[in-house]
Amino acid sequence: MSLIEIKDLKVHYPIRSGFWNRITDSVKAVDGITFNIEAGETYGLVGESGSGKSTTGKSVVGLEKVTSGSILYNGKDITKRDNRRKLDYNRDVQMIFQDSLSSLNPRKRIEDIIAEPLRNFEHLSKDDEKLRVLQLLNIVGLDADALYKYPHQFSGGQRQRIGVARAVATNPKLIIADEPVSALDLSVQAQVLNFMKKIQREFGISYLFISHDLGVVRHMCNNIAIMNRGRLVEIGTREDIYNHPLHIYTKRLLAAIPETNVNQRVAHRASRLAVEKIYEEQQDKYYDENGMAYPLVQVSPTHSVALPETIAKQLASQEGEVQA
């Protein structure tokens, strides 16, 4: 059984307008997505800004009100608040936020910030709690003198590591990492990511890694889901997605990865333009009449793509994949 099973999750926001302020339409931030997260793996959720990946992450951790669908954890639907409370759900599922400064309360000392989940879920004695906080700081590579300081006294990378320490404090099973490094510069990105990997190895934590940076995702994730306009367009292992992308949206994302090899600049530019041309010309093939992605079709045991079955089969054979 998977750690988390997300089934047909929908998050719609109402649009109110007119004299009576009635609901006239809705923004479909997340529109029926289904995937599972296994224990101990890093699941990548990739998409452009506004594709609904953060909303999905917030729904899984229980911060977003879900319109319909279910998220199963230990066989219980945790989209209901009562179930979350009964399970002490957030003891097992925690979150790392994108903006390290605003996610740490500026008026609290580091000790209080990291101890917050411990105080709510574990009720340790004062000394045990302090010891645990010191151990957590040590695990993320910070000194003990951080204990009584305030968040603004740390650099961005240090703050994000404090965020990681808080998320790990209760030894959770799953951590939602919502673009954890996109606000950091490149050298610090690697540092934070390596701490996250180290913690995963040591504590056997799963990550739902939300990002738009495909380079980082490749470094971190075993399984990847590509999101576009609130729907999943492609699911697969790292190899499936990076070596055999089927959906045009995935191809566009991959083409957008910056290349540092200047010798091949002309060739890269040509391939990017080719992908863009296919996208311009064949949009109606990849999206339905409303411009939305099709339901997912399985093309191999690990690989699914949101296309009509015939086209999916045809593309898959072109890519030379083994048929399911």
């Binding site: 911060l63 957030n90 979150m95 936020f97 994108q98 309360n105 917050e116 709510n120 808080r166």
Partner: peptide, 10 residues
């Protein structure tokens, strides 16, 4: 975000 973080901290 720190309010959201407090919520997920229970």
């Amino acid at each position: 975000d720190y309010v959201a973080a407090s919520k997920t901290s229970g």
